[in-house]
């Protein structure tokens, strides 16, 4: 059996959980095994039907009253117990922040290997898989010897797709559980009311070291505002203190996926590129025709951004009237 660990938020499966089930369906086929799901949390019940729609045949719920919120050690302890009791051949979660954390917690408890962010998995003795390194810039083929194989699939490695599956049956999992398993529970949560955010913006106006100063970003702000977009930046800019880290695009920053990314004065280092490559279109503004960002862009303007951006802003204002 393949056990898929499901992430949920306010009574809904997250997109990551739907992806894990989608990825899990084809993996379970290759394993020639059934697919079951683990739903942990006292508020997880409403997600059972959604898990069924996405292909889970059995859903193991663990709704212990102490599990009233997310806690990495608690979730890890429950998964480890499920592995011991239900004896799945493999366990899969999605490689979101929580998914990777829960699986590492379970792996530590089981003293078993854990392979994060796989894009392809082939069952067998040993298992073989392809996983991402460097935030997606490099792929690693690996083999795995394990009594129980623990994986996450890379976030967005597949697009979530429902199955025409029937209803899932539910089995309540009786975890041996007490307060000692809940040392790291979420204690408080602050949600700022967010408008257009960097990960969801349709237009991102990104600036790199070529912008020259913190003040130089005013030109990018103005254009981004006009286009109802957001300003992004490179790590060089964050390190210089010109913009907050929350604006950083890349391996150690935010992954963006706008309709268009306008990258000005950004050289396009690989660690920046992995955060930008999901953009549908890219327009680069750079004085260097050979810059990686220019080479990889759909369109480019080879000129000083300080002249080009105000000209674009003026043209947008003219057409908007």
């Amino acid at each position: 059996m393949l056990l898929v660990v499901l992430e949920h938020e306010r009574g809904e499966l997250t997109e990551a959980a739907r992806e894990a089930l989608t990825f899990g369906r084809s993996l379970a086929d290759k394993m020639d095994e059934g697919i079951e799901a683990a739903l942990i949390g006292s508020d997880a019940e409403p997600c059972v039907n959604q898990a069924g729609e996405f292909g889970a045949e059995v859903v193991h719920t663990c709704t212990h009253e102490l599990l009233s919120d997310y806690g990495p050690d608690a979730y890890g302890a429950v998964i480890a117990e499920m592995v011991a009791e239900l004896e799945p051949a493999a366990v899969l979660a999605c490689g979101s922040e929580r998914g990777n954390e829960i699986m590492a917690q379970a792996a530590a408890r089981l003293d078993a290997p854990f392979v994060a962010n796989c894009v392809d998995i082939t069952p067998g003795y040993p298992w073989s898989m392809t996983r991402v390194q460097w935030g997606g810039s490099l792929l690693e083929d690996s083999i795995l010897d394990a009594d129980v194989a623990l994986f996450t699939c890379g976030l967005h490695a597949v697009a979530a797709q429902p199955d025409d599956g029937a209803d899932a049956s539910v089995e309540e999992f009786d975890a041996e559980f007490d307060e000692s398993h809940c040392v790291t529970m979420v204690k408080d949560r602050t949600v700022q009311e967010a408008g257009v955010t960097l990960p969801t913006a349709r237009v991102v106006c990104g600036g790199g070291r070529g912008v020259g100063s913190a003040d130089g970003f005013a030109k990018l702000e103005e254009l981004a505002d006009l286009l109802n977009g957001r300003v992004g930046c490179s790590r060089a800019v964050t390190n210089l203190g010109w913009r907050p880290h929350s604006d950083q695009v890349g391996q150690t920053g935010t992954r963006i996926a706008p309709e268009i990314y306008i990258a000005s004065g950004v050289s396009g280092a690989i660690q920046h590129w992995v955060g930008a490559m999901a953009s549908k279109h890219i327009l680069a503004i750079n004085t260097d025709r050979e810059a990686n960002m220019v080479v990889k862009a759909d369109w480019a303007v080879i000129a000083d951004l300080h002249q080009v951006i105000p000209a674009i802003t003026a043209e947008v204002q003219r057409r908007k009237g």
Binding site: A112, L139, L144, V295, K296, A297, W299, V301, I302, I312
Partner: peptide, 29 residues
């Protein structure tokens, strides 16, 4: 541990022909 690396390789690159829209502010149009 139980995981062993076999080989590293680069993902297939997105190749795109970059269209140069201009070399100065007149490219704004």
């Amino acid at each position: 541990g139980g995981q062993r690396r076999v080989r590293l390789h680069r993902p297939a690159e997105q190749v795109s022909e970059t269209v140069i829209l201009g070399e100065g502010p007149e490219a704004a149009v």
